[in-house]
Computed example of a mutant assay.
Amino acid sequence: MQKGLLAGTIAGIVLGLSLKFMQALTGSKVYTLLLNVDFIPYMNQQWPEVTEFSFHLIISLLIGMVLHILAKRGYHPWQAACLLTLPTILLYFPLSVLAIKDVPAPNDWFAFSLWIIGHMLYAISLAYTYSKR
C-alpha cells in the first residue's frame, strides 16, 4: 500500500504544480479549479491554499491506494493509472459548473486542454512512480 500512497502523493504534487504553472503562464484558472471546494456544503469558506492543496492530495492518495489494489489484482500500473485518471479529466465539466469562485467556463476549450495536459502528467507520474518503487 505504501507504493500506492507514495505514487499518489508524487502524482498529486506534479498535477498541482503543473496546473499552478499553467495558470501563472496563461492566466487560465485551472489551478483554482483544481483546488476549488466552495460548492461542497460546509466547505464554502475561504481556505488557505495549503489547506485546499491538502484536500487535493487526499483525493490523490485515495487514487494511489486504488491503483495499488488494481495492480495487485493484475492490472498493469500504466493501464490502471490511465483508467483512474480518465474520470478526473471529465470532472472538469461538473466542477466548472458548480464552482462559486471565478473558474474557467465549461465551454472554455483552452482551459480544458490545459486540464487534460495536467492530468496526463498526473497519470504518467502516478504509473511511473508506482512502477519504480
Rank of each mutant, 00 (worst) to 15 (best):
L19E: 08
I58R: 09
I124S: 01
I69P: 00
A81D: 00
Y75D: 11
S125T: 15
S96F: 09
L70H: 09
P87W: 02
A11M: 08
I10Y: 04
P48H: 12
N36T: 10
A105P: 03
L6Q: 12
L61Y: 13
M1A: 15
G12N: 07
L5S: 12
L70D: 03
P48Y: 12
H119P: 08
G118N: 04
S113M: 09
L90C: 11
V37I: 14
F55M: 14
E52D: 14
T26P: 05
G8E: 10
P77Y: 01
L114D: 02
A80W: 02
D38M: 05
A11V: 05
L57Y: 04
A7Y: 10
H119C: 03
I63R: 12
M43H: 05
M120P: 00
K132H: 11
L17W: 06
K132P: 00
L17A: 11
K132L: 10
V50A: 15
G16M: 03
I10Q: 03
I116G: 01
A123I: 06
G12F: 04
H119W: 03
L62Y: 06
A99W: 04
P41C: 04
I13E: 01
I124C: 00
I89R: 05
S125R: 06
E49M: 13
A7N: 05
P104A: 09
L61S: 09
